[in-house]
């Protein structure tokens, strides 16, 4: 199972504003919590997200520690042309989680 799930309409009219839903499985460990022995749990957060529409970034986000675990996000973009939407989440260590979806625009 992929860590990320995205929902993009399969078809849209040119110029239509479409809703995109994303969800990614991640603990979003803040580094502020302690385990039962009182030792700090090291920080490991997703720090950024980008959605690219045929290579052009259309929505970008920088996360800080107050974003919940398993972040779910909903946002919008204009359906300009048929093609591919790429979603990339990057964590503190530079590890990336990727997902993509295609859309056909008429």
């Amino acid at each position: 199972m992929s860590a990320a799930q995205v929902r993009v309409p399969a078809q849209a009219k040119k110029g239509e504003v479409i809703e995109i839903k994303t969800r990614v499985t991640h603990d979003m460990e803040t580094g502020l919590r302690k385990d039962e022995k009182g030792k700090a749990i090291p920080r490991l957060m997703l720090k950024s997200f980008v959605c690219k529409y045929n290579g052009t970034p259309v929505f970008e986000a920088d996360f800080d520690t107050s974003v919940s675990a398993n972040p779910m996000m909903t946002f919008f973009t204009v359906a300009t042309e048929s093609g591919k939407l790429e979603f990339t989440w990057t964590d503190d260590n530079g590890v990336q989680i990727k997902e993509e979806a295609s859309i056909s625009v008429s």
Binding site: Y53, E60, A61, M73, T77, V78, T80
Partner: peptide, 15 residues
């Protein structure tokens, strides 16, 4: 969040 005219609508949701 960074958006622009390509967003079509200045709106988003998150937890």
């Amino acid at each position: 969040v960074k958006i622009g005219p390509r967003a079509g609508k200045a709106e988003f949701s998150i937890r």
